[in-house]
Amino acid sequence: MNDAIPSLRSASALVPSRAGAGLKAVHYQDIIDNQPDIGWFEIHPENYMGRGGAPLRYLERIRSDYPISMHSVGTSLGSHQPLDTKHLDDLKYLVDRFQPGLISEHLSWSHGYEWFTHDLIPLVYTQASLDLVVDHIQQVQDRLQRQILIENPSSYLQFKQSDIPEQHFLVEAAKRSGAGLLLDVNNVYVSCSNHQWDIEEYLAPIPAELVGEIHLAGHAVQALGNEQVLLIDDHGSPVCTAVWELYRNCIDRIGTVPTLIERDSNIPDFATLYNEVQYAEYYLRQSKEVNRVSTC
């Protein structure tokens, strides 16, 4: 890494209502060298749970220049098993060391046995699983001494046992635990398409004041035969036009919240990712102006 350019800045912890990008190892040096004008970066804390080495050093350097958010993938809030206190300790260590402005986790599970799926598996939405998730969110918040945001999942199947609509389950889980919500607009689009849910009905019960962050990403289309398709949330392509459209509706309704462009596969060079971040930045500015005019 390039230690020749020591940072003179000490960025605030606060994640601004601007667009941010997922921080990727292939972009570390580019970001340090070129100091792009970008609101914030998001990391998966599990990628920094090594005991030392380059990733933590790069993160330290980048954190001194930018606010960050932590988007956990390993807590397994919806698992029938107890939460892992060692993992919560590791998370707490990173939170104390890097002072993220926002912390989030998914409404899903990945720990079914003693091993981990490393994929986000959907929950059965019942009163019993709601009680479990609320208890798990509270345990995480108690350990971190912070509010966390819960993200709506993308999913490809539903369980027959579920008797609470996903959006009501999410809102109820957040309200009861004191958590906020991370609205993943691409996930709304993907899940509504995969399960023939109505997007308006999905979004209507979500209170604007609970939403602390928005995610945007690309998805793939998988043909299933008999003219049906499944949308696959692979974070492997630019955000599609329909999701941009939905995003603009969302920020006009709930306000301009920090918005992340997620990219986890087919990762382009930083300049390309930065251009996509600028779209979100543009829409956020536009929405702010529209709201300002309408409140005058």
Binding site: T117, D119, I121, Y156, L157, Q158, F159, K160, Q161, N194, Q222, L224, Q228, L230, I232
Partner: peptide
């Protein structure tokens, strides 16, 4: 246990 629209196996296979 999976809601069946004739595609439940293909849906599971994504996971």
């Amino acid at each position: 246990a999976i809601v069946d629209d004739g595609l439940n196996l293909q849906r599971f296979n994504v996971y």
